[in-house]
Amino acid sequence: MNRLAGIITHFHSVDTMSTVNVNTEIGEFCCVILENPQTATYLKKENKVKLLFKETNFFISKNQIYNFNSFRTIIKDILLADIFVKLAVESNNYFFCVLITKKEFETFDLNLNDEIFVYIKPTNIILEI
């Protein structure tokens, strides 16, 4: 599981669902959670949280497609298996593990030190306190 520390900058709640904006050292992320300030005491502006990303939940691209929840990375390591490929990518001295299928890996023709953009959907980010 990838972890990234950040600070809540904004949130908007409707019923028990909230969108939460979190500022981190590699950019601003938006996530959606089934909580509101009454059900989750950590849901306050300026509170520290960690963003959790599952390794298989990333979308990768050679160019930046999204201007939010996306960050530029450099491929630092590649581990080829039969079905999946494990990438170690670095962004602003943060390392992330990204698992993509071999099909994606071959389609994007990825190599060590290539620049790739990584995107994570707001519904795929878990907050950890």
Binding site: C31, I33, L34, E35, A40, L52, L79, A81, D82, I83, F84, V85, K86, L99, I126, L127, E128, I129
Partner: peptide, 23 residues
């Protein structure tokens, strides 16, 4: 109310671990 925002979460005990591809 664990320290995670994931609502779909359960406590469990690991019974077995096997390697498959990178997982």
């Amino acid at each position: 109310e664990k320290n995670l925002s994931g609502k779909f979460s359960f406590f469990g005990t690991i019974l077995d671990i096997r390697k498959s591809d990178v997982f």
